[in-house]
């Protein structure tokens, strides 16, 4: 059965506070902080993009896994901010992590859930013995139009999972997965456009909640599990509030989602979001504990996973930087620096 052999993440250290963005647009920071349940977000440096974040996360995952990178048979990078429109991020990552050349690689795009689509692809490929190991990464430097509500949450970060099937090498088994997908125009970015557009409140009920709830319930039906069978739950987190409401709708407690809810501190890392939440949970989980992870990608779809932590996690603990350490290591910037980092203002 496919499982997680190693995991790793990367969060850029620059942060901008809600107060600083609200100051520029003459908005009420307190009501935004309360409404979105977020305090600050991560911002990439000028020399960071979805490829550099993916490489750093993948290198951390490889250190954690302890595997020989030459044995990786597939590299998938999920992102909606791939640096090139044509030329894969996955080949850059494969070369930078020292993987061999006898591998398949591709960039995936499904808004915020492309990385978890990669998990499912690798589950099939490892379970069928087509490959020994695969690595899937969710990485983004997401964009929010200046003055748009998204600007408060769209952040940067990534996470990587090494997937294999040898139980003795795994830190967690993936017991089951289920997906729910529809054609829902809740959020999009046209080719060549710098910023995404969205359907405002339409992104909530018909988008996020419908797909998260359906995919999670499909997983419950498939496995016979109920919310109380899980120690932790991680939901995609476009803001700090939606995952709390989704948890309530499905019958999870706030305690179950507490550790994996990172958006209030680093913003919405898009393709990285649910996978980063899973990494934060794995930093703390002990053998025998179960984790529910349900991602969401606009457009729209959700992938849900039932994961059970195995004994292997103790042996590999401490091999990679903890997510909480990355989150604490930060440097605040003002709005002008933020615009410069996002390439919105340039020097003549």
């Amino acid at each position: 059965m496919a499982g997680i052999v190693g995991y790793g993440a990367y969060v850029p250290r620059m942060r901008i506070k809600v107060e600083e963005i609200a100051r520029v647009w003459n908005e009420d920071a307190e009501s935004i902080k309360k409404g979105l349940s977020i305090t600050e977000k991560s911002v990439p440096s000028m020399d960071e993009d979805a490829a550099t974040i993916a490489v750093e996360a993948a290198r951390n995952a490889l250190s954690h896994s302890g595997i020989n990178p030459k044995e990786i048979g597939a590299v998938y990078v999920g992102s909606e901010s791939h640096p090139y429109a044509v030329k894969p991020t996955a080949t850059i990552v494969a070369q930078a992590i020292g993987a061999g050349t006898s591998l398949t690689a591709a960039d995936l795009e499904f808004a915020c859930k492309a990385g978890t689509a990669g998990i499912q692809m690798l589950m099939g490929m490892t379970d069928s013995s087509m490959i020994k190991y695969g690595i899937t990464i969710g990485s983004d430097t997401s964009q929010g139009r200046p003055g748009d509500a998204l600007e408060y949450t769209a952040s940067a970060g990534g996470a990587a999972l090494v997937i294999g099937k040898e139980k003795s090498e795994c830190i967690a088994e993936i017991l089951a997965t289920a997906s729910y997908t529809t054609d829902t125009p809740d959020f999009w970015r046209r080719e060549g456009a710098n910023f995404p557009s969205h359907g405002g409140r339409f992104t909530g009920e018909p988008g996020y909640f419908k797909h998260i709830v359906h995919a999670s319930k499909l997983l419950f039906e498939k496995t016979g599990f109920k919310p109380s069978d899980f120690t932790y739950a991680v939901f995609h987190q476009p803001n700090g509030k939606f995952p709390k409401n989704a948890a309530k709708l499905l019958g999870f407690t706030e305690k179950q989602i507490e550790i994996g809810l990172l958006t209030p501190l680093i913003g919405n890392t898009y393709s990285g979001a649910s996978m980063l939440g899973l990494c934060a949970v794995l930093d703390n989980a002990v053998p025998g504990e179960r984790i529910l992870v349900t991602s969401f990608g606009s457009g729209a779809g959700s992938d849900s996973f039932a994961i059970e932590v195995t004994e292997g996690i103790n042996e590999k603990r401490g091999r990679a930087v903890k997510i909480s350490t990355m989150i604490k290591d930060k440097q605040y910037i003002d709005y002008a620096q933020y615009l410069k980092n996002r390439n919105s203002i340039t020097k003549r």
Binding site: S45, D47, D49, A51, T52, R59, A96
Partner: peptide, 17 residues
């Protein structure tokens, strides 16, 4: 070492990591 973007060949050229 860290993996970073060094420079780009203009708006449409290669990105040098």
């Amino acid at each position: 070492t860290a993996f970073r973007k060094m420079y780009t060949d203009g708006e449409e050229g290669l990105i040098h990591y």
